[in-house]
Design a protein around this nucleic acid. Structure first.
Lengths: 232, 232
DNA sequence: TCAAAAGTGTTTATGGTACACCCATGC
DNA sequence: GCATGGGTGTACCATAAACACTTTTGA
């Protein structure tokens, strides 16, 4: 890209793509759902046996985002509802070989995440608040992705990426509460979201407990927040 | 980084590092300063003769940020007062060869930027609002970097990266005005910044015109906003 | 003494938060 | 009926914007 001659292939800088995938899991009724993410167990050195982020090598003929989707599908069989580049990690010492990892982060709806993972003991969901030791610098990466998730949910409307097509305001609020780690006032939450024009009320209601709650869908007309410089 | 075998070097994905460097330039007195950035003219194909962002190939033995600093110094002899990773660009078609560019963005103080560039007709400063056609996808990159600059100046305290050690509130305000593209109320600006605790008043004043203005310095105790997941 | 920039005070609008209250349904 | 979550109304508080005003210098 510049005026110096290109490096010979023997420089051996390799490019990998990994993804931090977030979803929610309701375990204890009455409690806030937990933020969970899938990890894969490494079956070879380095760090054999340790848990790591799903990912793989970048193929010379595919774009970065395509590589993230592909490796994510190969290792976890998941299709994300939101995918955004997180950061490029390339410190010299982060792996025995010189690897630059382009890391993405993604959201998966809870009902999608609930479908069983591949019959593979080497893929599993973990509570983001109780992760095992991770390979490479993946703990740092997950920590940063969590920071970004919490940050972005504050100023954008990505929370619906964790919900099905139709959802109640209480369910949407629960997503914000789970990510933010604190309860929100239902009254104020309602006003804020329907003042923002991001939700379209449907004519259906969720019944089953007490007063039925109106179901909403996300208004795709309002632009999702910044997903990077790429054309959308 | 994963369970598939590493690719052979003949895959030929190369990693470059480029930097979008911002500074300010006062041209017309009374007018807002312009946002300017240095470009280098390409001396070889592809895109020979076109202007491009300063950068170079990533060396196998250096970190990404170090490579950004190095290539930036080699091509422009500039030392930035702020440096942060912007985005990884890696689309297949963005260059004849497969190149993944880790792009950084940087701030340079105006007095530093005023020192003459290397005696090289192939490096020059341009007004960000009137750029020539750029090589590769560098126009997209600059556009995104400008968006990030404007965004970040709104919620962080990086503006001082464009100013010398001591500066008046009017000078600091001018930075915000130049980046934001609109005038700000001096009274409200004053209250906002000294309410934030980011400035330390000095005992010196800038004289020369009318009533002298107190000089301030930046308070390095208050943490700069997010520069990424790396330890600082 | 006047122009111009530094710096202060005050009013108003706005958005978030807390919380009291009513509504509709399952049990 | 009554408990519970859905949904509305309203007062309060902090912050931002607008702008009148005073202070201090150079010319």
């Amino acid at each position: 890209m510049t005026r110096t001659p290109p490096p010979e292939p023997r420089d051996e800088i390799r490019v990998a793509v990994s993804t931090v995938i977030f979803s929610l899991r309701h375990d204890d009724a009455g409690e806030l759902p937990a933020v969970v993410l899938p990890l894969v167990r490494r079956t070879r050195d380095p760090h054999e046996g340790q848990w790591a982020l799903p990912g793989g090598w970048l193929d010379a003929s595919e774009n970065l985002e395509a590589a993230a989707s592909r490796t994510l599908a190969e290792t976890t069989a998941l299709a994300p509802s939101y995918l955004e580049q997180l950061y490029a990690f390339g410190d010299v010492g982060r792996s025995p070989a010189r690897v630059v990892s382009i890391v993405y982060w993604a959201l998966v709806r809870e009902d999608v995440a609930a479908t069983p993972l591949p019959a593979d003991e080497n893929v599993a969901w973990f509570d983001a608040a109780a992760l095992p030791p991770l390979a490479f610098d993946h703990e740092l990466i997950v920590e940063y992705a969590l920071w970004r998730l919490r940050n972005k949910v504050g100023y954008s409307r990505i929370a619906h990426g964790l919900l099905p097509e139709l959802f109640t305001l209480a369910e949407l609020r629960e997503v914000y509460e789970a990510i933010g780690g604190r309860r929100l006032d239902p009254a104020n939450f309602r006003r804020q979201v329907d003042g923002s024009g991001t939700l379209i009320p449907s004519d259906d209601f969720r019944t089953g407990s007490h007063r039925p709650a109106r179901l909403y869908r996300y208004n795709h007309d309002v632009e999702l927040a910044d997903r990077g410089p790429l054309p959308r």
